[in-house]
């Protein structure tokens, strides 16, 4: 993204390949910068989170900053794009201040690339939460997940998926109760007691002998909390970006480091307790190339790193969850 000079590029590459490898800020190859995470940042969203990688702890400057927010919306199945069981729609937008040197059409392209990866991964039917369904065949929740990149100091994909995962973890689905209309067949004259005039005239036929109970609408019961969490929230994937050099790889690159590697490998894993993780998506970015043997060993390594990321993130999210639950009086 950022342009760096040939000699800087050569310096970074040769430092990374030297023995022992050394990075510009002295980190090890698999060390991350400090990651700050906070959930529940947007009060009007059903779930939200803010993630910052490598932020300066004193004035909050620097670092890759990403905010994700999830908003639920009721959809009628079969009407427009609504599908039975609900759906997830993701979008990524980049603040122009995050990429001040990019022209606006290049920024659009970048947003589109990020959106397509996030959407394709998170809207996959196999990880769709069960409780997005309100009334089977009739109403469902549409989950809009919007991610905004406020600044980019490298490793933006990991930050996007961390924020997305934290926002989805934080999301509360409002409780619903299905209701149905009952018409008084015996007492036809008492029209005022019918809940809906249309409904009353509709079932007027004497030939109607159907006994099926048709749930036709739902209501939101008044309850003390905002709802229940999304089902299967452990399964949301984590992203890991491996920056590839001919003979080695490293994690959590800064912008300068990103500009000096020819190839990046994005891998997305979802974990369920102790079973083998599922590979959700994989993408190679950059001008370089790679062979199958290298990819195989990289996948093995990345699984190990991704599990560490997942465990740490899971721990942090549980902490956040409990700290929010604590009564604040």
């Amino acid at each position: 993204m950022s342009s760096i000079s040939k000699s800087e590029k050569a310096y970074i590459q040769s430092s990374l390949l030297s023995d022992p490898p050394l990075r510009a800020d002295g980190r090890g190859l698999t060390d991350f910068r400090t990651i700050a995470l906070e959930s529940g940042v947007a009060p009007l969203a059903n779930g939200s989170a803010r993630v910052s990688i490598g932020r300066n702890a004193y004035d909050g400057g620097g670092g890759t900053e990403v905010v994700a927010a999830a908003k639920l919306e009721v959809e009628t199945v079969g009407d427009g794009e609504g599908v039975d069981g609900g759906r997830v729609v993701c979008s990524v937008s980049c603040s122009p201040t995050a990429y001040p040197l990019l022209p606006s059409n290049a920024l659009d392209d970048l947003q589109h690339d990020m959106t397509s990866l996030l959407h394709a991964t998170l809207s996959h039917p196999t990880i769709r939460p069960q409780n997005l369904c309100i009334l089977p065949g009739k109403k469902s929740w549409l989950l809009n997940l919007d991610v905004i990149i406020f600044s980019d100091a490298g490793n933006v994909f990991d930050a996007i998926f961390m924020a997305a995962r934290a926002a989805l973890w934080d999301t509360k689905v409002p409780r619903t109760r299905s209701v149905q209309y009952r018409t008084q067949k015996s007492d036809r004259k008492d029209a005022t007691r019918a809940m809906d005039v249309d409904e009353a005239t509709h079932v007027g036929s004497a030939l109607d002998t159907r006994e099926t109970v048709q749930v036709s609408d739902f209501e939101l019961p008044d309850y003390w909390d905002e709802g229940e969490p999304l089902d299967g929230r452990q399964i949301w994937p984590v992203c890991l970006t491996l920056n590839l050099l001919p003979t080695s790889h490293f994690l959590d690159a800064t912008l300068q480091e990103e500009a000096s590697v020819p190839l990046k490998l994005l891998v997305l894993y979802s974990f369920q307790s102790d079973t083998t993780p599922l590979l959700r998506s994989m993408r190679l970015l950059g001008t370089g190339g790679s062979d199958l043997v290298q990819i195989k060993s990289l996948l093995k390594d990345s699984e190990k790193y991704a599990r560490i990321v997942w465990t740490a993130l899971e721990g942090k999210l549980k902490d956040e969850y409990h700290s929010l639950r604590k009564p604040s009086f």
Partner: peptide
């Protein structure tokens, strides 16, 4: 390898 912190400022 990595650590998470909160956004709260150092007191």
């Amino acid at each position: 390898m990595l650590s998470f912190i909160s956004f709260s400022r150092p007191t």
